[in-house]
């Protein structure tokens, strides 16, 4: 969550180049999701850190973020299966890493599920049949968008897979 005091972290353990990349990732999520700088820095760092697997305490030190920030990102991205996490026995530290195929896989999965989500929205409009326009409007607008995406997005992936198969 962004606040007035929200500032990019100090990244004491990063080279200038690494910082420039991590910063751009954070900037992207700030732009699309209004995400706090520290979370976006953790996202970006896990894309390029060396070694790939990092202890939470290492992430906190390298980026100058808080343990809470790393825990929040773990909650956000371990759950859907983008990052992976391994407990460190006998300590409250844990390891986190980004397996090399996970990010594209997760994005692809949510995009190919767009037609199914469109079906859910259509069911919602049935349930709200006869309800006031004010109550229906949230769903009407979403369904309008998803009726378009449900046709277009699968076609994008068909082309992608045909191209990849060549």
């Amino acid at each position: 969550m962004t606040t007035e005091t929200d500032q990019p972290p100090s990244t004491p353990g990063l080279t200038e180049d690494e910082r420039s990349f991590v910063h751009q990732v954070a900037q992207h999520y700030r732009n699309t999701d209004n995400m706090a700088w520290n979370y976006g820095y953790v996202f970006g760092y896990l894309m390029i850190c060396d070694p790939v697997e990092q202890r939470v305490s290492q992430i906190v030190e390298a980026l100058g973020v808080t343990r809470d920030d790393v825990d929040h990102v773990a909650k956000l991205l371990v759950t859907p299966g983008v990052f992976e996490k391994r407990e460190e026995p006998g300590s409250d530290d844990y390891w986190m890493w980004l397996p090399e195929h996970n990010w594209p896989k997760a994005v692809r999965y949510s995009l190919v599920n767009v037609p199914k989500f469109h079906d859910v929205l259509k069911r919602g409009l049935e349930v709200l049949e006869g309800a006031s326009a004010e109550r229906r409007e949230r769903l009407v607008r979403l369904e309008h968008l998803y009726s378009h995406l449900a046709v277009e997005i699968p076609a994008v992936f068909d082309r992608f897979e045909r191209a990849a198969a060549k």
């Binding site: 894309m47 090399e100 990010w103 594209p104 994005v107 692809r108």
Partner: peptide, 8 residues
């Protein structure tokens, strides 16, 4: 990691 994402 970055190479796979760049391609996708």
């Amino acid at each position: 990691r970055v190479a796979n994402m760049e391609r996708f």
